[in-house]
Amino acid sequence: MDADATDPLPAEAGLARRIASAAPGVDRAAEAELCRRLAPRIRRYGLRHLRDAEAAADLVQIVLMKLLEKLRAGGLRDPDQVVSFVFGTCRLVVLDLRRGDIRRERLLEAYGEDLAIADIAPPPRLDQARVERCLQALPERERAVLVLTFHEDRDAGEVAGQLGLTAGNVRVIRHRALARLRDCVLGGEAA
């Protein structure tokens, strides 16, 4: 990865500084904007590591509240490190959520109305009817690999074991199948 993609995030850092400098007051606008920017990214992390939409939503709420508490209290020495703080917190909270140490009910009691600021747009969805037409139009082996893969999110090794293929072979078929499906669904190609 090069510098273009990993530059510090001036917008997030700037918002973090505004929140920190507003203490003991609260800069609601900066908080809401920071949450709006970070929430989808935290949700993705949660979906990947928790595999559950509700748990991912919990993660978003918990991490953002921890971040805001830290910033309001002046506890984040370098606001440029806001994303690093979020990353570290995501890791810890995912462990807690997996252990069941954090309960959404307790959170709601603790933070009440503040949680509303973390409301975000729902994740994007595709035109399902189109997905189905495009999936149905794939060659048999490609459709089988996609179904076996995504029905329960199984890796290439597991799918290969079920189909009597090598993992490399499954990756090749999966790559081709996803490329076709993606072109068909997103590219507007009639299925």
Binding site: Q128, L146, F150, D153, L178
Partner: peptide, 10 residues
């Protein structure tokens, strides 16, 4: 994720 969910739902 959306493609994965679409396949799963289909």
């Amino acid at each position: 994720m959306a493609l994965a969910a679409g396949v799963r739902e289909a």
